[in-house]
Simulated assay, not measured.
Amino acid sequence: MATSEQIESPATINISKIGTEDWNSVPTDLEQQSFSQSSSFGFRSVDKENEIISAELITSTNTRITRYDPEREDIVEETITSTEEISFRINQNSELLEVYSNKDDNGEVINRLGQTIDRVTISDLNIYLEDIVEQLKSHEVDFEISALRINNISPEPNTNGNCYLNTHTDSVAEKLISEYEDDVTYLCIEISLDSEEATIGFYRSGSVRIFSNVNEDEKLFSIVRAAISGVNQHA
C-alpha cells in the first residue's frame, strides 16, 4: 500500500478542516494506537516531516459466514477477518486533512482520529468553487473549465432542477459560476502540465477527483493543494 506521500493519479482525495491544541503530540498519539491483530483499528507508517503528518489507518472487521464443508458433509460457521488500509495526510499549517479514498473511508478516518487525537476538531470543508478558479489563476496555472454542475437552477419561472453543463469557453463558464455561485457544486477542470494534461473534478464538499493518469503527480498534487489551501485560508 502506498503511503500518502506516494499517492499516484488517478486518485480521490477527501479534504476536511482539522485542528488541535497540541500538534506536537499528534504523531505520538497515532503511534500509541498502533494496529495489532487484537484491535479493530490502529495506525502504522506514521511519519512527520516539517509540518506534514502522514500515516495509514488500518481497520479490521470480523464477518461470520456459513458454508458447506464437503469433508464434514455439513454446514459450518466460520469467522473471516478482513483488513483495509486508508492513507491520509495532515498539513498543520493549512490545517487540512487529506484522505485518499472514498467517502465512507473518509468518515472512518475522521471517526478514528477523533478517538485517538486529544482535543481534535474535524469539520467539513465547504468551499465556493469560484474561489478555486481564482486560486488557480493566482498561481498562474494553465487551465480550462470543461464542465460544471449547478443545483437548484431556475431558468424560467415555476421551474427548478439540477443540471450538468459542458462548457466550451472559460468566459461562459465563469459567468455561470459567478451567477450561480451558491449553487455550483462541481467543477471539471483541464490542467495543462509541462508535457501532458490532467482532468480534475473539484466538489463543493472539498472532495477532489483526479481522473487522469499522469507522470507529473508531484506537480499536479501541489497545484490541487495550493488551490484548496488558498480557499481554506480565505474562508
Rank of each mutant, 00 (worst) to 15 (best):
I132C: 04
S60F: 00
P157I: 07
F143C: 04
Y68C: 10
R149A: 13
C188K: 07
E140S: 15
E130M: 09
E140P: 02
F211E: 12
I132S: 03
R204V: 06
G42C: 08
A226D: 15
T185W: 02
R64M: 13
N151F: 04
I86H: 01
N213D: 14
E77W: 05
I7T: 07
K175E: 15
N215D: 14
D170K: 11
N91H: 09
F143P: 00
S146N: 12
W23P: 07
Q135N: 10
I86T: 14
S212P: 06
Q135A: 15
I18P: 00
T61K: 14
I86G: 02
V99Y: 00
E8P: 00
E8A: 12
L165M: 13
T28W: 01
T61E: 15
S205Q: 03
T167N: 03
E140A: 15
T12C: 03
A198Y: 03
A235M: 14
Q33F: 13
M1S: 11
D217P: 02
I189S: 05
N102V: 09
V120W: 00
L136K: 00
D29Q: 05
W23F: 08
G201A: 12
L148E: 07
E84K: 13
E31D: 10
S205Y: 01
I228E: 04
E71C: 05
V133F: 01
T169C: 08
P155Y: 06
A55Q: 01
I189C: 07
